Deep mutational scan, measured.
Amino acid sequence: TYVQALFDFDPQEDGELGFRRGDFIHVMDNSDPNWWKGACHGQTGMFPRNYVTPVN
């Protein structure tokens, strides 16, 4: 499953995934309602669910 970033996200903690608005992120785990795990630009980490939108 892929999502697209609605906003820039700069990691604040180790293990978070940084990205820029418009980036596509491969979702690896969406079991938590607020923080998902994904991959983008060769990196993996957690990111806030409300920063992304589903891609059809």
Results as ranks from 00 to 15, higher is better:
residue 38 G to N: 01
residue 22 G to Q: 05
residue 51 Y to P: 01
residue 27 V to W: 01
residue 35 W to R: 11
residue 45 G to T: 01
residue 7 F to A: 11
residue 19 F to Q: 01
residue 47 F to N: 01
residue 7 F to V: 15
residue 55 V to M: 07
residue 9 F to A: 06
residue 16 E to Y: 14
residue 43 Q to V: 14
residue 11 P to I: 04
residue 21 R to C: 12
residue 39 A to L: 11
residue 54 P to S: 09
residue 35 W to Y: 15
residue 21 R to Q: 15
residue 41 H to I: 02
residue 28 M to I: 13
residue 10 D to T: 14
residue 14 D to Y: 05
residue 30 N to T: 15
residue 13 E to V: 10
residue 21 R to N: 12
residue 6 L to V: 10
residue 17 L to Y: 01
residue 11 P to V: 04
residue 21 R to G: 07
residue 18 G to N: 10
residue 29 D to M: 04
residue 16 E to L: 13
residue 37 K to Y: 15
residue 42 G to M: 05
residue 8 D to R: 03
residue 15 G to C: 09
residue 53 T to F: 09
residue 51 Y to A: 12
residue 35 W to G: 02
residue 52 V to D: 00
residue 55 V to I: 09
residue 47 F to P: 00
residue 50 N to G: 09
residue 36 W to S: 03
residue 48 P to Q: 04
residue 47 F to Q: 01
residue 12 Q to Y: 09
residue 2 Y to H: 07
residue 41 H to G: 11
residue 1 T to E: 03
residue 48 P to A: 04
residue 39 A to D: 12
residue 55 V to L: 09
residue 5 A to F: 02
residue 17 L to Q: 01
residue 16 E to N: 07
residue 4 Q to P: 00
residue 15 G to N: 11
residue 37 K to F: 08
residue 6 L to S: 07
residue 24 F to A: 06
residue 22 G to D: 05
residue 15 G to S: 12
residue 20 R to P: 01
residue 44 T to S: 08
residue 15 G to I: 10
residue 1 T to P: 07
residue 11 P to D: 04
residue 44 T to C: 07
residue 31 S to E: 10
residue 43 Q to F: 08
residue 11 P to Y: 02
residue 42 G to I: 00
residue 8 D to S: 07
residue 17 L to C: 03
residue 26 H to V: 13
residue 56 N to Y: 06
residue 24 F to W: 13
residue 44 T to N: 09
residue 30 N to F: 09
residue 9 F to S: 07
residue 20 R to M: 10
residue 55 V to Q: 15
residue 17 L to M: 08
residue 26 H to L: 13
residue 15 G to A: 08
residue 50 N to D: 07
residue 33 P to Q: 10
residue 9 F to M: 07
residue 13 E to F: 10
residue 40 C to F: 05
residue 35 W to M: 14
residue 26 H to R: 13
residue 37 K to M: 12
residue 34 N to W: 10
residue 24 F to C: 09
residue 6 L to P: 00
residue 53 T to G: 13
residue 45 G to Q: 02
residue 46 M to E: 06
residue 11 P to M: 03
residue 2 Y to L: 09
residue 7 F to S: 11
residue 10 D to K: 13
residue 5 A to Y: 01
residue 6 L to A: 11
residue 33 P to G: 13
residue 41 H to C: 09
residue 49 R to E: 05
residue 27 V to S: 00
residue 7 F to E: 15
residue 14 D to G: 09
residue 22 G to L: 04
residue 15 G to Q: 07
residue 18 G to P: 13
residue 38 G to P: 00
residue 33 P to A: 11
residue 5 A to Q: 03
residue 36 W to C: 06
residue 17 L to F: 06
residue 40 C to K: 05
residue 15 G to D: 06
residue 34 N to G: 12
residue 28 M to L: 14
residue 48 P to E: 03
residue 6 L to Y: 03
residue 45 G to C: 02
residue 33 P to W: 06
residue 48 P to G: 03
residue 43 Q to P: 00
residue 25 I to K: 00
residue 32 D to N: 13
residue 23 D to F: 03
residue 22 G to V: 03
residue 43 Q to H: 15
residue 29 D to V: 03
residue 55 V to D: 07
residue 48 P to W: 04
residue 52 V to P: 01
residue 51 Y to D: 00
residue 38 G to Q: 00
residue 41 H to V: 03
residue 16 E to V: 09
residue 14 D to N: 06
residue 43 Q to S: 13
residue 39 A to V: 14
residue 14 D to W: 06
residue 28 M to T: 14
residue 5 A to R: 01
residue 40 C to Y: 05
residue 47 F to L: 03
residue 40 C to Q: 03
residue 20 R to T: 10
residue 19 F to N: 02
residue 26 H to C: 13
residue 34 N to Q: 12
residue 41 H to A: 07
residue 44 T to P: 05
residue 34 N to V: 15
residue 8 D to T: 06
residue 23 D to H: 03
residue 25 I to N: 01
residue 40 C to G: 03
residue 1 T to M: 14
residue 49 R to L: 05
residue 39 A to Y: 11
residue 41 H to S: 08
residue 44 T to E: 14
residue 45 G to M: 00
residue 34 N to T: 15
residue 18 G to E: 14
residue 2 Y to N: 10
residue 46 M to R: 13
residue 27 V to F: 02
residue 10 D to I: 10
residue 50 N to V: 06
residue 5 A to C: 04
residue 50 N to F: 08
residue 33 P to K: 08
residue 27 V to E: 01
residue 51 Y to H: 13
residue 16 E to C: 15
residue 7 F to C: 14
residue 51 Y to S: 10
residue 32 D to L: 09
residue 41 H to E: 10
residue 53 T to Y: 08
residue 49 R to Y: 05
residue 22 G to F: 04
residue 51 Y to L: 15
residue 51 Y to N: 05
residue 34 N to H: 14
residue 26 H to W: 11
residue 33 P to Y: 13
residue 25 I to A: 00
residue 51 Y to C: 10
residue 13 E to Q: 12
residue 35 W to K: 09
residue 41 H to W: 05
residue 28 M to F: 09
residue 14 D to C: 14
residue 29 D to I: 01
residue 9 F to I: 04
residue 51 Y to F: 10
residue 23 D to W: 05
residue 36 W to Q: 03
residue 37 K to A: 07
residue 19 F to W: 00
residue 18 G to T: 11
